[in-house]
Design a protein around this nucleic acid. Structure first.
Length: 602
DNA sequence: TTAGGGTTAG
């Protein structure tokens, strides 16, 4: 069907200009579906749905408010898309993490004989980051070289970035592209290369380039600052921070992250309070920092202050904060974030729903996790994995396995993370033979080769099932080097079955890997004690003293409405200590009367 | 091109 060319009356021209302006002015996050649909209808009415300037703007607007099906519909309305429209569509897909679709658009474009330009390859290379796939980047690189494509600075810069994001395997290629650019390098090339080296922890090399670069800008300073902060070299980072010709919100946030990760929340707070300009990222860093450390009151207070000051948490903020809550079991803040999502009607993406499922599951609210999971419009593999793992870790092994079966029926292919959850479900549900069966068939039936995580699970499974020799044999024959988790699982099993000799051997391996962890010695000491070998208990204690490893006392944390309460052995600092001990003594007497024999830890 | 981002064994 031929679309008649619009008649360019002055009224048409002004409508066109108005629509173009409206599309450009749309706010990124608060655009509603209706607003956009109205604009789309107007575009149709004025016969502008073939317009080479209007349509990319419409597609971008749909993409920004996560309406990709409408973006695709709009794209299909255009009969002869030009390179600009293809580029827009590739970028829209990448922005929405639809990497496969982005590549499909690229192939479609080639089939239609439309030539890629300087923008196509950088957009496409950004799509490779989603796969984090070195081979894919290499393929595009070869493609560009084969075409004899004019290597404008944008394309090699994108190549440096994409290669660097592939980690250690790609950084060599990134360097070759960087060096090949010669005099053609701009400040972005230098910054990207420095960032790439920082990503693979080659800090001194990055510093060398930073010192060597002809002209540095704020991004260069921030990149190298981030390198020091991520490496935990906070003194060096701070020195650099003070020496910076000027600082922006990114520089301050980089320092916040550094101190947060080192656990120094006082310093983090001091910097945060001193920041001249804050943004969503800086609020997120400090709130998630407090949350991850279980500092409930500080985290919730700041979250509320942030909302009072008119900040609306974006996807990044919500996900980071929920993840931090999940890590420390901070249900209080997790619920608070969930409330504000509901109250403000934020768009709840699959990413956010996954974070909610994970948070509720990790915090022990399995019903809440399940109700969100069941109500999800669109589940992805991560949703299933999070729910399976959540059920498994709380002892609902059979439910987890049922969910695994359901997931396959729905057409999802399990990945390596799924099998960690499945094996964990078997361990905690006591399904030893089933677990071993899964372990030995995961590669054959699903093409997922077992990795160290799966060996960890199955060794735990065998160990808890009392099949210690089998577990030990597997550790010795497995193709990967056993780590502390593997040896730790084995030591735990030895403790369960009082396997003294095996425990001694396992401990020697563990001590080599983590000499500073006193928990390992305690475990061995407990095994000796359980078998009445008091002389060896004394030996181990002496060895602990000599090596200077002191086991920190364990603490229990309970979250009530007003925050997290910590309890340790013989600790009386809690304001309600007297009442609590009274209750504990009463309970203790009661359970002994009904036949409880305490398992004394030595 | 720089700061925060979901699922992973003891």
């Amino acid at each position: 069907m031929q679309v008649p060319a619009p008649i360019r009356t002055p009224a048409w021209v002004s409508t066109r200009r108005l629509l173009e302006q409206k599309l450009s002015d749309l706010p990124k996050h608060s655009t509603t579906f209706n607003q956009l649909n109205q604009l789309h209808a107007l575009i149709y009415k004025h016969n502008l749905h073939q317009d080479p300037f209007i349509m990319p703007k419409l597609i971008t607007a749909y993409s920004l408010c996560r309406q990709m099906s409408n973006a695709v519909k709009s794209f299909r309305q255009v009969q002869q898309p030009n390179v600009h429209l293809y580029n827009t569509m590739i970028r829209a897909n990448v922005f929405n993490s639809l990497y496969v679709d982005a590549f499909d658009v690229f192939f479609h474009m080639q089939r239609c004989g439309v030539y890629a330009d300087n923008f196509t390859y950088p957009f496409l290379l950004k799509g490779c980051c989603g796969f984090n796939d070195y081979v894919l980047v290499k393929m595009i690189h070869c493609h560009v070289v084969k075409l004899g494509f004019c290597l404008d600075v944008y394309v090699p810069n994108a190549l440096i970035d994409s290669y660097s994001r592939c980690g250690v395997v790609g950084v060599g290629d990134a360097k070759r592209v960087f060096e090949g650019m010669g005099e053609g390098r701009d400040v972005v090339s230098w910054n990207t290369m420095i960032g790439g080296l920082v990503k693979v922890n080659r800090l001194s090399e990055a510093r060398g380039l930073f010192d060597e670069m002809p002209v540095s800008d704020m991004v260069s300073w921030n990149t190298i600052l981030d390198g020091y902060a991520k490496a935990g070299e906070l003194n060096d980072a701070f020195e650099l921070f003070e020496r910076m010709p000027e600082r922006n919100v990114v520089s301050w946030s980089t320092m916040l992250t550094g101190y947060c990760k080192s656990g120094d929340m006082d310093m983090t707070r001091m910097l945060f309070d001193k920041m001249p300009v804050k943004n969503m990222v800086s609020w997120t860093i400090i709130i998630a920092g407090y949350a991850a450390k279980g500092l409930a009151k500080e985290a919730v207070d700041l979250y509320e202050r942030m909302e009072e000051e008119g900040y609306r948490p974006d996807d990044g903020a919500i996900i980071s904060i929920l993840a931090a809550c999940a890590e420390s079991g901070l249900l209080w803040l997790g619920k608070r974030v969930h409330q504000s999502i509901k109250r403000n009607g934020y768009y709840c993406s699959t990413l956010i729903e996954n974070a909610l499922v994970d948070m509720y599951a990790k915090c022990g609210s399995l019903n809440k996790a399940l109700s969100i999971f069941n109500g999800m419009g669109k589940k992805d593999l991560v949703s299933w994995n999070a729910m399976i793992h959540g059920l498994a870790m709380h002892g609902h092994g059979s439910e987890a396995l049922e969910l695994f079966a359901e997931m396959k029926e729905e057409g999802f292919t399990p990945d390596k993370v799924t099998f960690v959850g499945v094996l964990c479900a078997c361990t905690h549900g006591g399904y030893i033979d089933e677990g071993i069966q899964f372990f030995y068939t995961m590669e054959r039936d699903y093409g997922v080769p077992p990795e160290i995580e799966h060996y960890g699970c199955v060794i735990d499974l065998l160990g808890r099932g009392g099949r210690l020799q089998e577990a030990f044999r597997l550790v010795r024959t497995m193709p990967v080097e056993p780590n502390v988790i593997i040896w730790g699982a084995l030591l735990g099993a030895c403790r369960l079955y009082n396997a003294v000799e095996l425990a001694q051997e396992v401990l020697e391996h563990l001590v080599k890997l983590e000499p500073e962890n006193a928990g390992n010695y305690s475990m061995l000491s407990n095994i000796y004690a359980a078998t009445g070998n008091w002389a060896s208990v004394a030996d181990v204690r002496l060895r602990m003293k000599n090596t200077g490893s002191e086991k920190p006392s364990g603490a229990s944390l309970i979250e009530l409405d007003d925050g997290v309460h910590e309890f340790t052995v013989k600790n009386t600092v809690h304001p309600a200590s007297d009442k609590i001990y009274h209750m504990v003594d009463g309970l203790s007497d009661h359970i002994k009367k009904v036949g409880y024999i305490p398992d004394v830890i030595y």
